[in-house]
Amino acid sequence: MTDAEWQRVRPLLPVPGWLEGRGGRPESYCHRVMLDAVFYVVDNGIKWRAMSVDFPAWDRVYAFFRRWRNNGLIDELHDRLRGKVREAEGREPEPSAAVIDSQSVKADAVVGTGSRGYDGGKKINGRPRHLICDTIGLLLMINVTAGDVTDRQAAADMLSALRDRFPTITRLWADSGYTGTLITWDLSMLHLVVTVIKRTDDVSGFVVLPRRWVVERTFAWLLHSRRLARDYERRPDSSEAVIRWSMTRLMTRRLAGPRRA
Rank of each mutant, 00 (worst) to 15 (best):
D231Q: 10
V111C: 14
C133A: 08
T150K: 08
E87D: 01
S115I: 13
L138W: 05
L138Q: 12
A241G: 05
V38L: 02
W48A: 09
M189L: 14
L81M: 12
T195K: 14
D237R: 15
A109K: 15
P236L: 08
R171T: 12
L12K: 11
P93Q: 04
P210I: 12
T184H: 14
V193M: 15
G180W: 12
A229Y: 09
A63M: 06
P93R: 11
W221P: 03
A97Q: 15
Q7C: 13
G23D: 11
R254C: 01
I124C: 00
P128I: 03
H78P: 06
K47N: 13
D231R: 08
L35M: 14
L228N: 07
V53G: 01
M141I: 08
R67C: 00
P11T: 09
F64H: 09
A88F: 03
E233P: 00
R244F: 02
A107R: 09
I46S: 02
I136Q: 11
H191M: 13
G126N: 05
R152H: 05
N143T: 04
P167E: 04
R86V: 02
L192S: 05
R254Q: 11
R211C: 14
I243V: 13
L192C: 13
D119R: 07
D201K: 15
G147Y: 10
L139V: 12
R127C: 02
H78C: 12
W221N: 01
Y40P: 02
M189I: 15
Y178L: 03
R253M: 03
V15F: 01
A229V: 13
R171C: 04
P95C: 08
L73D: 10
W48Y: 10
P11Y: 04
Y62D: 07
T145N: 11
R127D: 06
N70L: 15
P16K: 09
R249P: 00
I169Q: 05
R67N: 01
M141R: 14
A37F: 00
W68Y: 02
P16R: 11
Y29F: 12
S239L: 05
W48E: 05
R227D: 06
R230W: 07
A63I: 00
Y232D: 00
G72M: 07
K123H: 10
Y40T: 04
I46L: 06
T135N: 10
L162F: 07
G21N: 02
G21C: 03
E27G: 05
T179W: 01
A107K: 14
Y29W: 12
A174T: 06
P236M: 12
R86F: 02
T168P: 09
D148R: 14
F206W: 08
R60P: 00
S246V: 07
W173C: 06
W185K: 12
N71K: 15
D164G: 10
A156L: 14
R129V: 02
Y232V: 01
E20Y: 00
V38I: 05
